[in-house]
């Protein structure tokens, strides 16, 4: 029988004048989903980056599959200091939609994530799917969402949800 409702909201941030948001107090779940709806306040297009437990070492990697509107491609990045989850721009009224699923975030294995990203810009854009790895067996206790450059535009929302298995 079902163990009860889950997929619960943990926290939401609506950042202004900053390019980094930290989440702690993650609760007790099996997986965490981050839903990021963002635009860049100024500057050129920039990565949306994910880090765990304030680790800025080169302990991350990711493999991506994407389409540009003209072609499909795949790329990988190893020994990175972050997982690039998406791309956001400074274009009026155009918002980027990103999800990040973090599996078994409190478990003893390395941490694997799956991301989706819709980076549309009316004539240019990308659609992305990525798998990312944080090479650590530590339980994730904090999550940092940041831009590679610039700040989040007002109206950005970053929400965490917890999914608890039976």
């Amino acid at each position: 029988m079902p163990a009860g409702a889950t997929y619960e909201p943990i926290a939401t941030s609506s950042p202004t004048s900053v390019g980094t948001v930290d989440f702690s107090s993650l609760g007790s779940y099996t997986d965490i989903r981050i839903v990021i709806f963002t635009r860049q306040a100024a500057g050129s297009a920039t990565d949306i980056r994910i880090r765990f437990n304030s680790d800025t070492g080169t302990n991350y990697s990711f493999t991506e599959l994407y389409g540009t509107g003209a072609a499909a491609a795949s790329a990988s990045t190893s020994n990175a200091s972050y997982i690039a989850a998406g791309l956001t721009r400074n274009v009026a009224n155009i918002w980027n939609a990103t999800t990040v699923d973090i599996f078994n975030y409190a478990g003893a294995t390395n941490k694997t994530v799956l991301t989706t990203d819709a980076s549309e810009s009316n004539g240019s854009g990308y659609v992305w799917r990525k798998v990312g790895l944080w090479r650590s067996t530590s339980a994730i206790t904090t999550i940092t969402v940041s831009l590679n450059s610039g700040n989040f535009a007002t109206g950005t929302t970053i929400s965490l949800y917890g999914i608890k298995a039976a």
């Binding site: 990697s61 493999t63 599959l65 990988s76 799956l114 799917r129 798998v131 990312g132 790895l133």
Partner: peptide, 15 residues
């Protein structure tokens, strides 16, 4: 389905 895996140097991602 969305699925994949990464090993820091090799990876697979698929839908």
């Amino acid at each position: 389905v969305l699925c994949g895996g990464d090993t820091n140097g090799a990876g697979e991602i698929g839908i």
